[in-house]
């Protein structure tokens, strides 16, 4: 077993692309689910709106990154608006059904050959935002001994985590305000909030838009990191990875989704590399599992860990045990 490789790749996974992207997606879900109690099962759709909005604006219309990213966010806001309009008046489950379907519709549309001139079909869009790395002011990599980063990785991390911190600050400022209080109250009981003169539907719309925009930022960071975008990156499990990260860290806590995302990708990478190492070194016989299967088994193990977490620490890492206990009432 080569432990240094295991540790290195685990640490790397905790701070690079996926950790950033899913931290943003989960911050958005935290606004929806953690604070407002909205079950958005289509966060991948909002991520796709951000990613494709930015990608199309850059590759098809020749926009620069800044305005293109704004366009991506505007698309996600419109998506939230049109999803919310018919569903937010109804019971919570309807939103879950509609969002999961909407996200799939978006993925199917951008994947279809019909619009491949604009969206690139199943191959997606390439060469998005070369300016992102061209403007990299960092001219040397960083070697921390156990883990090292290239200047490209460093640049993405600076920008990506910068955006994450910004979103966290925004979340913090909002949830401690009277606005946040209304959201949390809606999560507990909509009718009580209505009876106190608050326009519940409109607050839920605001929540859906804000969280969706955070999700779109996740999609945009994904696009910039890989300079491309593929439709199948926004399949349904993407939403549930973000949900897992949120629950792992603790819903309804500012740090929850961010730490949860880092841990989630750390666990996935750790189990993946450990299993491969164990197979390569014959600790696991090949009749039981081969290298290809390890890629699937990591998700099984991660799922098992999550189940264990729910049993022993329902509130997630940052959650408040006292709050969870109140659910019994």
């Amino acid at each position: 077993m080569n432990w240094s490789i295991i540790i290195e790749s685990t640490l790397e996974a905790m701070v690079t692309k996926n950790a950033v992207v899913f931290a943003l997606a989960a911050i958005g879900l935290n606004i929806h689910y953690g604070y407002t109690g909205l079950l958005n099962f289509g966060q991948a759709g909002f991520m796709a709106a951000g990613a494709y909005g930015t990608g199309i604006a850059i590759t098809q219309w020749g926009w620069t990154i800044g305005p293109a990213a704004v366009f991506g966010i505007v698309l996600s806001v419109l998506l939230a608006f049109f999803l919310g309009l018919p569903t937010l008046r109804l019971r919570a489950d309807y939103l879950a059904i509609v969002t999961i379907a909407a996200a799939e519709i978006i993925r199917r549309i951008v994947k279809s050959t019909q619009y491949s001139e604009v969206t690139g079909g199943s191959g997606g869009l390439n060469g998005i935002g070369r300016g992102f790395y061209d403007n990299n002011p960092i001219d040397s990599g960083l070697d921390l001994g156990i883990v090292s980063f290239s200047e490209r990785e460093l640049w993405f991390m600076v920008v990506g985590w910068g955006v994450v911190v910004l979103c966290m600050v925004l979340t913090y400022l909002l949830v401690r305000s009277p606005w946040g209080r209304v959201l949390k109250a809606i999560r507990e009981d909509e009718d009580a909030v209505r009876s106190l003169g608050k326009n519940v539907t409109w607050y839920k719309m605001q929540s859906l838009i804000l969280g969706g925009a955070f999700g779109a930022l996740g999609g945009i960071m994904l696009t910039l990191e890989q300079q491309s975008v593929q439709p199948d990156q926004f399949f349904t499990p993407t939403t549930f990875f973000a949900f897992t990260a949120l629950i792992l860290g603790g819903a309804g806590r500012v740090f929850g989704p961010v730490v949860g995302s880092m841990l989630f990708w750390g666990i996935i990478q750790f189990t993946d590399v450990s299993l491969r190492q164990a197979i390569a070194n014959d600790y696991i016989p090949t009749w039981l599992m081969d290298g290809v299967q390890a890629g699937q088994v990591r998700f099984i193990i991660a799922g098992g860990l999550l189940a264990a977490l729910m049993i022993f620490r329902q509130q997630g890492l940052f959650g408040n045990k006292r709050e969870v206990a109140l659910d019994d009432h």
Binding site: R181, K184, A185, R187, E188, D189, D191, A192, S195, E323, L326, D327, H329
Partner: peptide
């Protein structure tokens, strides 16, 4: 049925 907002 009282609607106290439990987690507030």
């Amino acid at each position: 049925l009282t609607k106290a907002l439990s987690k507030l």
